[in-house]
Design a protein around this nucleic acid. Structure first.
Length: 212
DNA sequence: GCGACAG
DNA sequence: ATCTTGTCGC
């Protein structure tokens, strides 16, 4: 927790505008059913077409348990290991978890951003802290996620009439641009394509290692 | 003290 | 996260 308090002071809220983004990265980690193995995946997509350019995975064993608020210590190491084999690196990374919408304002997306220096966005399926009102039905509708009187993110509708996702900045990006990128990268389903494909890729790796 | 608590 | 069973909708 002390490390998070120190690293959070390095987070910045400005960065590229959506026109500057040529490649988008999606990050996710899957676990074997008994929890003894994990697979981290990075999928790189072309920002304009959303075509897949590269898929990289990294397998390991979990080194840190799941503790709410300390999630990045579990998933950042394998994700950073996978990123070492990615070339060229994406202009922006979409992370499966929160950015500053975190008890100490330093979730997984912030951690990945500060360590790599790459702009990052946090996309979570559930709110961890904060309060919000239900956004309207149409895709792109949003409402602020508030905590302690401050805006820490947004509840964003990524597709018509589906449950919203929770977007917060990770590092080197504005909340407006972060939401623009998330909506742009969600052509059909609730979960942005980069994260959705990373989820599939990481899961497929674990199944490939299963004896059937 | 009690409830909440990303994945 | 992962597992389980069923339902709704395109």
């Amino acid at each position: 927790m002390a490390l998070q308090e120190r690293l959070r002071t390095l987070v910045t809220h400005t960065g590229p505008s959506i026109e500057d983004v040529r490649r988008l990265g999606g990050l996710d980690v899957s676990y074997s059913k008994d929890g003894s193995r994990l697979s981290a995946a990075v999928v790189v997509l072309d920002m304009g077409t959303l075509n897949v350019e590269q898929v990289t995975t990294y397998e390991d064993t979990p080194k840190f348990g799941y503790v709410p608020g300390l999630f990045s210590f579990r998933e950042a190491p394998p994700l950073l290991a996978a990123l070492e084999n990615v070339d060229p690196l994406p202009d922006v990374l979409l992370c499966d978890g929160h950015g500053i919408a975190h008890p100490r304002r330093f979730g997984l997306a912030c951690h990945i951003g500060v360590i790599t220096g790459i702009p990052t966005i946090g996309v979570a399926k559930q709110a961890m802290i904060g309060h919000y009102e239900e956004p309207d039905g149409p895709q792109g509708s949003w409402s602020p996620l508030m905590d302690a009187g401050k805006v820490i993110g947004r509840a964003l509708r990524t597709a018509d009439n589906v449950k919203p996702v929770f977007v917060s900045i990770g590092h080197k990006i504005s909340l407006d641009t972060a939401c623009d990128i998330v909506v742009h990268s969600t052509p059909k389903y609730r979960i942005p394509q980069p994260i959705r494909l990373a989820d599939q890729a990481s899961r497929h790796v674990l199944r490939a290692g299963t004896v059937t």
